[in-house]
Design a protein around this nucleic acid. Structure first.
Lengths: 210, 210
DNA sequence: GTCTATAACCCGATAGAC
DNA sequence: GTCTATCGGGTTATAGAC
């Protein structure tokens, strides 16, 4: 029996994977700017440098592409957050952990804007089947933040006159929306993250401290 | 010459205005939940209790309906904000004015959710012609808040280590997004507005005050 | 003012050649 | 793996009856 040269297999599958990745990338960009219904498979194919029919070799349907773009939008951010928090020393304060989480969340949101903006823009406007599947990924990420805030509350570092879910929804929502107005030309990302964190932690008013 | 009885004129034009209003209302609801491209004139007509062709007696195009829904989403909120701030005593602090503005913004956002959510959801995904027209309404409202924050900064009530535009974009963005997660069953609107204002003013951490 | 009917066009998905 | 060609269906907008 003959065995196909490995280089052939690797090359062919690598190219296929590459095409698949390109389709996802362009799909994210188009979903972000035109929404789900207005984004056509012909447009995606054009942008990815293939013909519309070829998409069906890589994906089963338009909805499957949507699902992968949505999931990627969350996992990119979630991974960035977890990486930064786990890199902190074991005795880090909850304040420091939340700060690291905010920095990671912002970094993911702003450096993968097509995936993250597409996610928050189209999530409210997609078929319920796609929504139900993607909900699970969202729920897991929300739970991660809830545990973080819960610990901060128990340690006395978080304000206690406001509901925990409310703090999470408000903060994550506010951070998410930065992708819609962040302008990299107005300063470094590090400065941006520092300023956002300061507002989230201490608010917009001046305070007399002890 | 004969003059048409006034009741007839009033009745007929009132009914036309009513149909028009119903079309806008249902359009806002559908735009919110399905996006611009996926919202069809047949659906809007169905929901409004007329046939698709009849829409063209009241509007010139689908884009004109979109434009009116978008504008209404901003003007409802802007009117609520201005009304509350202008009702304050002349010597009110800038802190109190901003608090009144936040309460008004939240009230408008949450009590006209179909118009306001449709606005923030579809704005990034519409034809540039519609965007360019609506931009003007948005700009005027942003300017209003900028003046408010500028005065608060001059009086020393606003933190000075952060850009002014950044504060406005962050706060308005965070307030806007509440329409996506606010749950009226979890407490009164007044409580909600009070808690949001507290977070915006003082942040999510505990602070030792003088 | 609202209707029916239809023109002109674009969509997702599939079949089958290469 | 990618192509061309096409099916069945839905879209905005218009024309003209009532």
């Amino acid at each position: 029996m003959t065995i196909k040269p490995r280089s052939d297999v690797a090359s062919s599958s690598a190219e296929a994977a590459d095409t698949r990745e390109r389709i996802l990338l362009e799909a994210a960009r188009l979903l972000r700017h035109h929404g789900y219904a207005a984004t056509t498979l012909r447009e995606i194919a054009d942008a990815a440098g293939v013909k519309a029919g070829s998409i069906y070799y890589h994906f089963e349907s338009k909805e499957e592409i949507l699902g992968e773009v949505l999931d990627k939008g969350i996992t990119i951010v979630a991974d960035a957050v977890r990486t930064r928090i786990e890199a902190l020393p074991a005795n880090a304060s909850w304040r420091d952990r939340i700060a690291a989480g905010i920095e990671g969340h912002l970094w993911g949101m702003l450096h993968y804007g097509d995936f993250t903006s597409a996610n928050i823009r189209v999530y409210g406007q997609i078929p319920t089947s796609a929504k139900n599947h993607h909900k699970i990924v969202r729920r897991a990420y929300a739970d991660y933040w809830d545990r973080l805030f819960e610990s901060a509350l128990a340690s006395g570092e978080l304000r206690q006159d406001t509901g925990l879910a409310m703090i999470r929804l408000f903060v994550i929502g506010a951070l998410n929306w930065t992708v819609e107005w962040y302008n990299p030309q107005r300063g470094s990302f590090q400065d941006f993250a520092r300023q956002i964190t300061a507002i989230v932690f201490d608010g917009i008013l001046t305070h007399d401290k002890v």
